[in-house]
Computed example of a mutant assay.
Amino acid sequence: MDKIDKSILKQLQINAKQNIKEIAGKVGLSVTPTYERVKKLEQAKIIKSYVALLDREVIGKKFVAYCQITLIRHHKGLINDFKTYTLNFPEIMECHHISGNFDFLLKIVVDDITQYQQFITDKLSLLDSISTINSSFVMESVKDTTVYEL
């Protein structure tokens, strides 16, 4: 991946709706080589997908919580079951198996604290392998980006 590929990726991260001609003009190439580079980046799986990023405030998803989950013990089966379980809930935006004092870090996004409490009580806490759930609530998002520095 050279400097031009990185520039193309930066442009796509900023606005994936740009057409190839617009990207080509910004990176200093003609349309055909730009198109070919984008295709190669897709084939190499560097570009995973193209998405529309929604404004969560506008769609009513105003409550963000980070949950630190500790399992009752470190056992491959329990870990895999937990991973699979979390895939069933659209409220869980991110799930990370982490090192340190906790086993998993979840990012949960819902409408409000009531919906969060219902999620914890009616869904997440039903899994017997969970020992503790510690929650932190986002008061303000100072930086929230999807653009990687290349």
Rank of each mutant, 00 (worst) to 15 (best):
H75D: 13
E140W: 14
R73L: 04
N88G: 09
K6W: 02
I20W: 05
S141A: 14
T145L: 08
Y66H: 10
H74I: 09
L105R: 09
T114L: 13
Q11R: 11
E36L: 12
E94Y: 09
K143F: 12
Q68S: 11
P33I: 11
G60S: 03
I133H: 01
L126E: 01
I8K: 03
Q118N: 15
G60A: 03
A44D: 08
D112V: 02
K17F: 11
V147G: 00
L54E: 11
E91D: 04
S131L: 14
S99F: 12
N19Y: 02
D103H: 02
T132Q: 13
C95A: 13
A52Q: 14
V109Q: 07
I72L: 11
K48E: 13
V138M: 07
V58A: 11
K107D: 01
Q18K: 14
V142L: 12
K21G: 10
H97A: 11
I4F: 02
K143Y: 12
V147Q: 01
K26D: 05
V51L: 07
D128H: 09
T70Y: 01
L106F: 00
V38L: 04
A16G: 10
Y50P: 00
K48V: 07
K21N: 10
G28Y: 06
E91K: 11
E36W: 07
G60T: 05
T86D: 00
F104M: 00
I59V: 10
D103R: 03
Y116W: 08
D2W: 03
K17P: 03
K143Q: 13
L127D: 00
E94G: 03
D144Y: 15
I23R: 01
T146G: 15
L53M: 05
I120L: 10
N88Y: 04
I113G: 13
K3E: 12
K62C: 06
Q68D: 12
I72A: 12
V110D: 05
K48I: 12
Q118D: 15
T32H: 08
S141H: 09
Y116S: 07
Q13F: 04
V110G: 06
T114Y: 12
L54D: 12
I133S: 05
Y35H: 10
I98V: 15
C95W: 03
Q118M: 15
G25A: 10
L87K: 11
K45N: 08
Q13E: 08
I98S: 04
S7N: 13
N15G: 09
K26Y: 05
V58R: 12
I14W: 12
K62W: 02
H74F: 07
S99L: 10
V142C: 06
F102M: 02
Q68L: 11
P33K: 03
C67V: 14
T121C: 07
I72V: 15
